[in-house]
């Protein structure tokens, strides 16, 4: 049976990859959230403007 022991550097690389994945995930969430907020708030403003007219 082969002896396999992870070096500390592997943990560090895993942490770096995980960190990057979380940052990219957060970016996707941020863009989605911003799109939803912009579309709904501008939609509401447009509806209010039309109602006035």
């Amino acid at each position: 049976m082969a002896i396999h022991k992870d070096h500390e550097i592997h943990h560090r690389r895993f942490g770096r990859n995980l960190g990057l994945a979380l940052v990219l995930g957060a970016f996707v969430v941020l863009l989605m959230g911003l799109t939803v907020v912009k579309v709904t708030s501008e939609g509401r403003a447009l509806a209010a403007q039309e109602a006035k007219q």
Partner: peptide, 15 residues
């Protein structure tokens, strides 16, 4: 796996 790393490589950055 640990044996293939040189001391210089252990300076690799963490997140």
């Amino acid at each position: 796996d640990a044996s293939i790393h040189t001391p210089a490589q252990t300076k690799e950055a963490s997140f």
